[in-house]
Write a protein that binds this DNA or RNA. Structure first.
Lengths: 220, 220
DNA sequence: GAGAAAAGGTGTACGGCGTACACCTTGGTG
DNA sequence: CACCAAGGTGTACGCCGTACACCTTTTCTC
């Protein structure tokens, strides 16, 4: 077995999280996967937090660079959808990114580049600032649902009529959602459509503000 | 000391999380706070997951009911801002809510009632469905930033010029943000303004779609 | 090539966690 | 008063992250 290094550790960690879920990624389990004693990992990452940081950077590094185009909205759109594809490959990643206390270098670079697209598209510094906030985690392709789509709903809750009676509006929505009965928000829907619906709504809103020459309200 | 019950346990848990942060909420610590042995808690909650579920319901129960009004946007806006105030009182809550695998009863009730406001406001079932998705966690007052505002940035990163050189666009934005130098996204900004900016952008977009009689694109 | 120094890997151990399980204590009911 | 269910206890297990001291291997220098 060749020697360990930081990159091998990170790649193994990402692979392990992809396969077994983030909750089963422990230093001990990762070490075992690498055929090494747990403490060996600490020669390559300072601690578990830094391991997670490194995993985030690995994943964010998979996002395609922006493809230059004349329409800033198209460039943003394409890149965010690329980010989304990456996040769908690594379903644990959005939780980990959100759990970081600060942005990692790869994320900073990504954000910097995104800001560049907005600025080059003609949005003022102020508008870009608020736009970045408004996009929030959507910038990285999160759909930020309230709950994981579908999934085992855990509780032994009666599946149909009882719920429909207690939450009639939810039932109405669920019934209307394309496929058959689904969980409250997310299950049975076309997640990709939902993501793009919200993304385009926001991008259109930004464009409208740009055209109107939006400027921040006076302070105070 | 009076006897324990589920509600006392939940209230103590919420209080402990408020004071010491969610990361220091352990069954053992909570038991100690209640002057009881750890295993005593398990007579009132099945396990830690269910404790967290209960905490979520407690917090969501603090959100004001909708104040009826003629303008659906106003009703939604007011209620979401109430949710946001609650979430700001319990800063650990949004993380816990996101970590739940399924919605709890209080959350279901909240969502149901929110759907009612949209429907009564004249949005079609389909549009309401997508609107709920588009709002995502914003429905509960999350600003869903990429990272916690400000906070100790952990790393010994040089604060100013070096970062500005590597991430010039970020630096430009940061410089323009009202107050002095802040972290990438969040610090030094008026979070409340940012939240309302995005919220109103979305609500305005929804209203526009409603007026235009939006209907879902044909399938396939 | 010899030897030192740096880098990488090991073994043991500690304090924390959630919680299973068997047990005791208490308060309310017949 | 006896009983029994509900509530509280004590012990123990198997995880976790990681500090610390140690050994081994590689790499660098003369």
């Amino acid at each position: 077995m060749t020697r360990l290094n930081r990159e091998r550790v990170l790649r193994a960690a990402v692979a392990l999280a992809d396969e077994s879920g983030i909750e089963s990624l422990s230093m001990r389990r990762l070490a075992q996967e690498l055929g090494v004693v747990p403490m060996a990992l600490y020669k390559h990452v300072a601690n578990k937090e830094q391991l997670l940081d490194g995993m985030v950077d690995t994943v964010v590094g998979e996002i395609d660079p922006p493809e230059p185009g004349s329409d800033w909205r198209g460039v943003v759109r394409q890149r965010i959808l690329s980010a989304r594809r990456v996040l769908l490959r690594h379903r644990w990643a959005y939780r980990v990114i959100e759990s970081r206390t600060g942005p990692t270098p790869a994320v900073l670079e990504y954000l910097d580049s995104m800001i560049g697209v907005f600025r080059d598209g003609g949005l003022s510094v102020d508008l870009t600032h608020h736009v970045m906030h408004a996009m929030g985690s959507r910038l990285l392709g999160f759909s930020q649902e309230l709950f994981e789509a579908s999934g085992a709903s855990g509780g032994a809750e009666p599946p149909g009529p009882a719920l429909a009676q207690r939450y009639p509006r939810i039932a109405e929505l669920a019934a209307a959602a394309a496929h058959d009965g689904d969980s409250v928000v997310g299950g049975g829907c076309d997640d990709q459509f939902e993501f793009e619906f919200a993304l385009d709504l926001l991008l259109d809103g930004f464009e409208r503000l740009r055209v109107e020459g939006w400027s921040p309200p006076g302070r105070g």
